[in-house]
Each structure stands twice: as structure tokens, then as C-alpha cells.
């Protein structure tokens, strides 16, 4: 809000009361949210540390602390967790990068250029994704089988094919998010560069993209989470255990009522959440780097 330089002396003078009013209450809210957001996940963590437990059979959390499930995860020949992990990282990263790239291109066009069909185009992007995809899986299967007959490298069973399907969703809500952000970058910057003789591609890649880094990071993160947790399409496309993602692989531990293994599944889910957290930590400096507009001027 106000510049920090002015706050600090004030804090010293007014002491705790001021701190409480300025920052303290934020911690209070933080703590409440900590409980609300994290509490249900404690069950998952507790189950993952229990060699033979159920997920929600008991409120007696953390009865045992045993890392056996985590060790076992890496020892199952039919469930190659390490491979799943790697696949997820690759598919998630490539899909996220591709989504950011395609989305940014489109958002730039919508934000900076005027052409017929622009309004309708924007609206269509939104509407297409609202269609209830009851038959999405059947259609995607038919499509990838057909494509696979011509290009086996991107047919059913390939990770490339799956990534391409994910890229199909690159334009859409994300485009809007970026579009809104692009609009906040003053057009004068483009104009100035244009006068200096920069090509449109150069302006886009070297100037604009840098200025909108926060939203690129947000979209990248959202798309990474989206494609790593996607289950339905991935389970149709990826058939060989060695190529599967965490979402598909892990689900096999609990899909059958009579042979559910919640404890191993929970351990897998905990590990699977780590990359998301790590990516968020890494991107945080871009997302909250802030003061972008100020830096421009």
C-alpha cells in the first residue's frame, strides 16, 4: 500500500498495536487458512506413514511414523514410480511451456491487433471450453488412433500424442488471463520500438514477453498442475506402465475396492505434490516479482 520507507519508523513508535493492525492480522488469517487448507491433507500424510492403515478409517492421526511406504514405492516392478515421476515432469513441463507460448501468441494478437472476427473469436474461445465433454474420451481415442495410423509417433500410447491433446486446450481461459495482462502494458512501448525499427516478432519476444512475466508464470503453473493431474485422457492415451503419468499410475493402487492400497497411494500423492510446490516456489519470484508496470516507465 503505502511505501515501506514511511512505515518503518511508525512501527517503531507505535509498537505492537501498529504491527497487529498492519501485518499481524494477516498472520492470523494465514494461520486460519493454514488449518483449513492443510488439515485434510494431514490425513493423507498420516496414511502415507502408516504401513497398514486406511485413509479415513480413524481420527487417530500419526499413530506410527514409518517411511516404508515411500521406500516400497520405488521397488515395485509393475508400478515404476520413478518413471511415472519423470514422465509427469516431462509431460507437464512441455505442455506448460507449449500452452504459455501458444496462449501468449494469441493473447498478443487479440490485445494489439484489430481484425475482423476478433470479438467473436475471443468469445468462441471461451464457449468452446464450456461444452460438456461426456464423449471427449471416445472422440480423442478415435482421433489419436486415426492419427497414429499415419504418424505412429503421435498416436495412442505415445506421450507426444498426449502433449498435443493438452496443447489443444492452450487457447481458452488462459488466453483471457494473458490478454487482460497484455492490455495493461502501454501501447507506447510497442510504438517506440516500432519506430526504432524492431519487427513485430522482435517486439513480442524481446520486449512484451518480459513485461508480462508474472502472468506467464501463473499460466505456466496452472497448466503444469492441470496436465500433471489430468487423469481421464491420460489413462486412455498412455497404455504402457513405463510411459504413464503419476495421475494414471497412482490411481491403480486404489481403483479396485478389494485391493486398495491407500497407504502407498498416499505416499505417492505426497511425493507427487512436491514438484508442484517446488515449481511454485521457483516461479514465485516472477509471479510476485511485481512492480512490473513501474519498471517499464
Amino acid at each position: 500500500m503505502t511505501s515501506t520507507a514511511r512505515i518503518i519508523p511508525a512501527t517503531r513508535r507505535k509498537g505492537f498495536l501498529y504491527w497487529a493492525r498492519d501485518t499481524g492480522w494477516r498472520h492470523l488469517i494465514g494461520l486460519v487458512m493454514l488449518v483449513f487448507a492443510a488439515f485434510p491433507l494431514l490425513y493423507v500424510l498420516s496414511a502415507s506413514l502408516n504401513p497398514s492403515g486406511t485413509l479415513v478409517g480413524s481420527n487417530d492421526l500419526f499413530r506410527t511414523i514409518d517411511f516404508g511406504n515411500y521406500v516400497r514405492l520405488f521397488q515395485l516392478p509393475q508400478q515404476p514410480f520413478a518413471a511415472w515421476f519423470l514422465n509427469t515432469m516431462i509431460i507437464g513441463s512441455v505442455a506448460a511451456l507449449g500452452t504459455v507460448f501458444l496462449g501468449a501468441l494469441a493473447a498478443y494478437a487479440f490485445s494489439r491487433m484489430r481484425f475482423t472476427g476478433r470479438r467473436v473469436g475471443l468469445l468462441t474461445l471461451l464457449l468452446v471450453q464450456m461444452f460438456p465433454q461426456l464423449l471427449g474420451v471416445v472422440a480423442i481415442f478415435l482421433l489419436l488412433t486415426g492419427i497414429g495410423e499415419i504418424f505412429p509417433a503421435i498416436g495412442i500410447g505415445t506421450q507426444t500424442g498426449l502433449i498435443l491433446v493438452y496443447l489443444g486446450g492452450a487457447l481458452g481461459v488462459n488466453t483471457y488471463l494473458m490478454y487482460g495482462f497484455f492490455n495493461t502494458v502501454p501501447v507506447s512501448i510497442d510504438e517506440a520500438a516500432k519506430i526504432d525499427g524492431a519487427s513485430h516478432a522482435r517486439i513480442f519476444f524481446t520486449i512484451i514477453l518480459r513485461l508480462v512475466a508474472p502472468i506467464l508464470a501463473v499460466v505456466g503453473l496452472l497448466s503444469f498442475i492441470g496436465s500433471t493431474s489430468e487423469f481421464v485422457i491420460a489413462s486412455i492415451v498412455l497404455t504402457d506402465p513405463q510411459t504413464q503419468t503419476l495421475a494414471v499410475g497412482l490411481y491403480q493402487f486404489v481403483s479396485q475396492e478389494t485391493s486398495r492400497n491407500w497407504t502407498i497411494f498416499s505416499a505417492g500423492a505426497v511425493l507427487a505434490a512436491l514438484p508442484v510446490v517446488a515449481l511454485f516456489l521457483y516461479l514465485q519470484k516472477y509471479i510476485i516479482g511485481g512492480l512490473t508496470a513501474g519498471a517499464v516507465k
Binding site: 494478437a109 476478433r118 468452446v128 482421433l143 489443444g168 487457447l171 481458452g172
Partner: peptide, 25 residues
């Protein structure tokens, strides 16, 4: 046709993998 240059890549994917699903349904 500058807008088309920027929109085409995304639209191709959209058409193949999303519009197709809608049309099929």
C-alpha cells in the same frame, strides 16, 4: 495478415483436439 500469424498455431491445436470433440458429440 499479422493476426493470423500469431493465432494460427494455437488455433490448429484447438481445431484438431477441441472442435473435433464438440463436433463429434
Amino acid at each position: 495478415w499479422l493476426p493470423a500469424k500469431y493465432l494460427a498455431p494455437g488455433l490448429v491445436f484447438l481445431a484438431i483436439f477441441q472442435i473435433f470433440v464438440v463436433v463429434y458429440s
